[in-house]
Simulated assay, not measured.
Amino acid sequence: MSIGVWGYLGEYEQERDDLLDAVDTVFRSGQLVLGASVEGFEAEFAGYHNVDACVSVDNGTNAIVLALRALGIEAGDEVITVSNTAAPTVIAIDAVGARPVFVDVDPDTYLMDVDQVEAAITPRSRAILPVHLYGQSVRMEPLLAIARRHDLAVLEDCAQAHGARHHGRIVGSFGDAAAFSFYPTKVLGAYGDGGAVLTGSRSTAARLRRLRYYGMEDRYYVVQTPGHNCRLDAVQAEILRRKLIRLDSYIKRRREIADRYREGLAGTGLVLPAVADGNEHVYYLYVVRHPDRERIMASASAAGIHLNVSYRWPVHTMSGFAHLEYGPGSLPVTERLADEIFSLPMYPSLTEIAQERVIDALVRAL
Rank of each mutant, 00 (worst) to 15 (best):
D193T: 12
P332T: 07
F174V: 02
L211V: 05
D360N: 13
R209C: 04
D108L: 13
L155G: 06
Q224C: 00
R149K: 15
S299P: 04
N59G: 05
R255F: 13
G40T: 10
S343N: 14
R241I: 11
Y286T: 07
V23G: 05
L144Y: 09
A63E: 01
L265D: 01
Y283A: 07
D176R: 10
T199C: 10
S2R: 13
L337V: 11
R126W: 06
V235S: 08
G72M: 01
N308W: 11
R357A: 14
M297E: 13
M1L: 15
A127E: 02
A161Q: 06
V105K: 10
V309W: 10
S173T: 04
S181A: 12
A119Q: 14
S173M: 03
A178G: 13
D157C: 14
N62P: 01
V154Y: 08
Y326S: 07
G200A: 09
D360M: 08
F182R: 00
V271Y: 06
E325V: 13
E294V: 14
A22Q: 04
S201N: 10
V333F: 08
P273A: 02
V282D: 02
G60K: 01
D233I: 01
D21R: 15
D24H: 13
S173A: 14
A196Q: 00
G76F: 07
D233C: 10
L324I: 07
L240T: 02
V79K: 04
D77E: 11
V33N: 11
C230R: 13
L337P: 04
F41Q: 08
A36N: 11
E335I: 09
T204N: 05
A161W: 05
V222R: 14
